[in-house]
């Protein structure tokens, strides 16, 4: 019986399962290459995946309300391009101001999503698809066939260049903030409520529309922040930056146990999901898989995880039925 309850705990809690996978992976990798988990390597894993990790927090909130946002990398590009141009032509040079501008722009983009989804009753995927085109187009318009190279954003890139702690601080602050928000504040509870049962939330006095608008606004703001961070870390701003990477963010959430039908998911799970993808990508060459195969592996992991979930759920249901006395 003791055994069974441990098994149940692991299959029952997504965070525990992910942690177990991570530990097994860690041991396996360390055996193959004892120096893999060097501080430098770990630092790089986080730095290279900071954008995904930050945006995954917003996506977590959006998916908790049973929504989705595929416009985020377009928002990122729009905000990133704008500040890239601003600093290229020396209109604004303060790092803080550039970050703020990017975040305000992201906030605006997100609010547009939220307003149309909440008030216009438009399916989130369609609405954000529309803005995915609009903001990406705007990124090109802002760029006006120009892009910002490393030389153009030299000063701004100081913040995020290899070896600085700026990106890590942002990452830690974001995760701490969201962990607190979702677990310990009323607003966090409202997000879960809306996603778990919107009708019940409405009846119990939660303003569903406002919650939705806030969630998409938060997502946009984080995408804006990621835009600034991207310019800073990669020392360039191009209109096509991070094109198609929104799916990585969604994938991190899905692996992290965030349900697409809403109401289920946690900051810890999201973090572990993102971390697992990042480590696998980095570690593939160790097991003689060329890094070119990392996408295939990622896709397989997504499918395996979600199908595993369905099968365990079916088993649990079956067991419950068998226990029913007749």
């Amino acid at each position: 019986m003791e055994n069974k309850s441990l098994w149940k705990k692991i299959t029952g809690s997504r965070e525990a399962l992910l942690l177990a996978i991570l530990v097994v992976m860690g041991i396996f990798i360390t055996i193959l290459n004892p120096t893999f988990f060097s501080p430098v390597n770990i630092g790089q894993i986080f730095r290279n995946n900071a954008l995904t990790m930050i945006m995954a927090l917003g996506m977590l909130c959006v998916m908790l309300t049973a929504g989705i946002d595929i416009s985020i990398t377009s928002t990122l590009a729009f905000a990133g391009m704008t500040i890239g141009m601003l600093t290229k032509y020396n209109i604004v040079n303060s790092t803080l101001a550039l970050f703020l501008i990017a975040m305000v722009m992201g906030c605006f983009c997100g609010a547009m999503n939220g307003l149309i989804i909440a008030k216009g009753k438009v399916a989130p995927i369609i609405c954000t698809m529309g803005f995915m085109y609009i903001w990406r187009g705007m990124a090109y318009v802002v760029g006006n066939s120009q892009f910002a190279s490393g030389e153009d954003v030299r000063e701004f890139a100081e913040f995020g260049k290899d070896g600085t702690i700026g990106p890590y601080i942002i990452l830690i602050v974001c995760y701490a903030l969201f962990f607190w928000m979702l677990k310990w504040t009323k607003f966090g509870r409202k997000i879960y409520a809306v996603g778990s049962n919107a009708e019940a939330a409405r009846i119990s006095g939660i303003n569903v529309d406002n919650t939705l608008i806030s969630v998409y606004t938060i997502m946009g703001t984080l995408a804006g922040l990621a835009g600034a961070l991207s310019v800073s870390i990669y020392a360039s701003a191009q209109p096509n930056m991070q094109y198609g990477r929104e799916m990585d963010v969604i994938a991190a959430c899905v692996i992290g146990g965030v349900s697409m039908s809403g109401g289920r998911g946690s900051v810890a799970g999201t973090f572990l999901g993102a971390l697992i993808i990042s480590i696998i990508a980095k570690a593939l060459p160790l097991v003689n898989v060329p890094s070119i195969a990392q996408n295939t592996v990622k896709g397989v992991i997504i499918l395996v995880v979600v199908i595993f979930n369905v099968i365990t759920q079916r088993m649990v249901d079956r067991q419950n039925l068998e226990r029913r006395e007749m």
Binding site: I250, V254, M260, S261, P290, N295, V297, V306
Partner: peptide, 24 residues
């Protein structure tokens, strides 16, 4: 086989896999 899963997620998985195979 798994009608419980949203098609968005399963095709997200195959999206990455199909392009991944092409990449390989």
């Amino acid at each position: 086989s798994f009608p419980e899963l949203p098609s968005m997620i399963t095709t997200l998985g195959t999206q990455i896999i199909f392009r991944g195979i092409a990449e390989i």
